[in-house]
């Protein structure tokens, strides 16, 4: 029993501190009016949630979160920030209650929707009872890939993944066509216009 506790309690402490820091960083992002600080804090938030996903054994989700959340979207937000102001305008006090009401209603609806979800680890839930078990059973025989998620994404749902990649490629090409070839140089034009002012 004692060995069981020494194995569990540090990880529980780790998860708790990671979640607490997530909440604190979110409040810091809300309080800060310096947009650059908000961008850096959102990158920190993504790294924190990535570490939490690793602790939950969802390594692929964690990797996506770190690459997209901490890497790409930080750079995108910095690019957007260079096009606008560096400081956030003060919130109009009259609009705050309306926004709070909208957020509370949406949150209540989302929490209400989770009541219908099957219990955690329920063997009779749709995800576990129908086709999910078949993937778990057949993947080692069908495809010699140790990671079942990879097997599902790249082989069982290969055409679906190909379509998603096509959509993202088309979106990227469209953005480059809209912004022009000069946008590839990465913000040089913005700085030039700023110096003219």
């Amino acid at each position: 029993m004692s060995s069981f506790q020494t194995h569990i309690s540090p990880l529980l402490f780790l998860d708790l501190s990671l979640l607490t820091m997530l909440v604190l960083v979110a409040f810091a992002m809300l309080r800060s009016r310096q947009l650059f600080a908000v961008v850096m804090l959102s990158g920190i938030y993504s790294l924190l949630s990535a570490a939490f996903f690793v602790s939950l054994d969802a390594v692929d989700v964690a990797f996506t979160e770190a690459a997209v959340g901490a890497g790409v979207s930080t750079v995108l937000m910095l690019g957007g920030m260079l096009l606008t102001a560096r400081r956030e305008k003060p919130v109009t006090p009259g609009r705050a209650p309306v926004a709070l009401a909208v957020v509370l209603a949406t949150g209540a609806a989302l929490i209400y929707a989770t009541i219908d979800m099957p219990a955690f680890g329920d063997p009779h839930s749709p995800a576990n009872s129908s086709i999910g078990q078949m993937y778990v059973d057949e993947t080692p025989n069908d495809i010699a890939v140790p990671n079942i998620v990879t097997a599902v994404l790249a082989s069982y749902r290969g055409f679906d993944t190909l379509g998603e990649t096509m959509v993202i490629f088309t979106a990227g090409v469209a953005v480059i066509l809209l912004l022009g070839i000069g946008s590839v140089r990465g913000g040089r034009r913005i700085a030039d216009r700023d110096e003219d002012e």
Partner: peptide, 23 residues
Amino acid sequence: IALLYALINFAATLAILRFFSYR
């Protein structure tokens, strides 16, 4: 996984710093 994170962190910091050279 930690090694991959180190690579991402390095690339992200380079990308962030790249924006300052134009400001």
